[in-house]
């Protein structure tokens, strides 16, 4: 069984909170900046353990059933992230092991001896009334669109195909085209380019997230300042009213 690229416990502990939240999101968890650090840490660890216990083929079952575009070689973290974003209303056609994966990633603990229909029912209840209403709305909208677009059934009938792997063009064909050194060099260059591109994307994403965080904090600071100023104004008015009342009372007593 292949192991997902999990961060070890000490390195997880050392991660700053925003990094931990980001890492949790890559595991398919819905964490926000307000989640306490300890809670986020516990959730990430639980998710890591869950991913370790999951069968990758079962996860691929779910992905195929959901018809999500993914490479066959995708790791468990990526699969978990994709699956966690989906909340299907019906589960017909999904294998039992796939249903187990879907339940596990949705936070539904499987009970031994539980029937499939009971598990499906519990899975549908996870989102509460809001999710039920949302599913109903989408179902109605889906029926309407399906009636309008007649070719949708044809598209559904196609077999699922994985995305092409990066190594689609073999090193053999590279060497055939450009010779031994050229072929190997081309392959290495391709790998290096991919790595650099991936890292640059990652850095860009982190910078964007940091800028968003700064913007959010400045917005909070602005709101806090305005609230503070308004509070001072209110206190001034209250004090003025009290003095005016006192003055009025004084006038009344004097007269």
């Amino acid at each position: 069984m292949d192991r997902p690229e999990v961060a070890s416990a000490p390195s997880l502990f050392k991660l700053p909170k925003d990094e931990l939240v980001r890492y949790g999101c890559t595991l398919g968890l819905s964490l926000s900046g307000d989640t306490p650090h300890e809670e986020a840490l516990a959730m990430v660890r639980r998710r890591q353990e869950l991913l370790l216990s999951m069968d990758r083929e079962a996860m691929l079952d779910v992905v195929r059933w959901l018809r999500l575009p993914v490479r066959r070689s995708a790791n468990k973290e990526h699969l978990a992230q994709l699956i966690s974003q989906q909340h299907p209303a019906h589960h017909e056609g999904l294998s039992d092991r796939g249903l187990g994966v879907l339940a596990g990633l949705s936070g539904v603990e499987p009970v031994s001896g539980e029937s499939r229909s009971a598990l499906e029912r519990r899975l549908r209840k996870t989102g509460g009334v809001g999710a039920k209403l949302r599913r109903f709305r989408r179902s109605a909208m889906g029926s309407l669109v399906a009636k309008l677009v007649s070719s949708s059934n044809i598209a559904d009938s196609h077999d699922y195909r994985y995305l092409p792997e990066d190594e689609a063009q073999s090193i053999k064909s590279d060497i055939e085209q450009t010779g031994l050194v050229g072929g190997v060099a081309r392959r290495l260059r391709g790998v290096a380019d991919d790595y650099v591109r991936e890292k640059l994307d990652e850095i860009e994403q982190r910078i964007d997230q940091k800028l968003d965080e700064i913007d959010r904090r400045l917005g909070e600071w602005r709101d806090r300042e305005v609230t503070h100023r308004l509070l001072i104004l209110k206190l001034t008015l209250v004090f003025s009213i009290l003095v005016a009342l006192l003055s009025l009372l004084y006038d009344y007593v004097r007269s």
Partner: peptide
């Protein structure tokens, strides 16, 4: 800040009324 502005408006109205009473 709608509620804050509302409070300030009410307080200001009360103050003006008290000043008029003087």
């Amino acid at each position: 800040f709608f509620f804050d502005f509302l409070q300030i408006g009410v307080l200001a109205a009360v103050l003006v009324y008290l000043l008029l009473m003087h």
